[in-house]
Amino acid sequence: MGALEIVNFYLVPGIVVGSIYALGAVGITLVFAILRYAHLAHGDLATLGAFLALGAVTILGVSPYVALPIAMLLTAVISVGIDKTFYAYLRERPKIVTVMASLGVALMVRSLVQVVWGVDSETYSRGIVRPENWFGIRLRDREIVTVLAMVALVLALQVFLKRSKWGKAMRAMSDNPDLALLSGVDNRKVVTLTWLIVGGLCAAAGVFLGLNYELKAMMGWTMLLPMFAAAILGGVGRIEGAVLGGLIVGIAEEMSTLFLPTEYKAATAFAILLLMLLVRPTGLLKGKVL
């Protein structure tokens, strides 16, 4: 097999799915950093975002790219609602209680999607998209958009965290929550802001997954493990780390099919996660210790 085939059939799909994992992993790492628990409803929120975009596509007749910001906004608001309804009361309790609650939320969100949209696979648009040839490398528009959108969203987030007053408050809260409180930061506002961002990123991950593959009620849940692997691989609390981790897990999954039967693809993320926890639990870029 030539280098070009490896790029076309393994590396490009790996980068695309890796970008999707990255969007999810950034959210997971933010929740870890600021709220300090593992959010297991992350995948199903992505599913919800993907189907909300489908709703916009079918009801408004817009393209998936127009539906994307709509779905991001709706999912962001729903995430804040979920936090206020289910997680806010558990803030003072041991974190494991919230982790379990998020598993319950995951099941609820998935059931809701199944009730509204059914259990069959859906797509945003019918028909086969032929990839364009770029000097032998074959890329579809949606693949290019997926990667560019991931980069743009992450850069925007980084600028927000580095430059804006409330972005700095989020970093402060992640760094030293007690001191943030002493500095007059209202932690409830930071939590709300965090969920807005996390919900939006979740929806983006879901929409791009639906755009490149298909929409299914289980799509987000199956993405949960690789997203967590990516967040931990990159270093918990590290945005750049989550992106790096997402890309590595995505590429590793696709590459694994060179050597292993495709059924083992999902196990790749698990293997990376285990290896990382054993060898370097702080992740590639030094993150928080879990």
Partner: peptide
């Protein structure tokens, strides 16, 4: 804090992953 009281705790009293200037900025939040 709004009433004009500021407190420097005994331990963990800086934001370690923020710059000196950002620490001051957080003080003026």
């Amino acid at each position: 804090v709004e009433a004009g009281v500021c407190y420097v705790p005994q331990v963990d009293n800086v934001f370690r992953e923020m710059t000196v200037h950002e620490n001051l900025e957080m003080g003026a939040f």
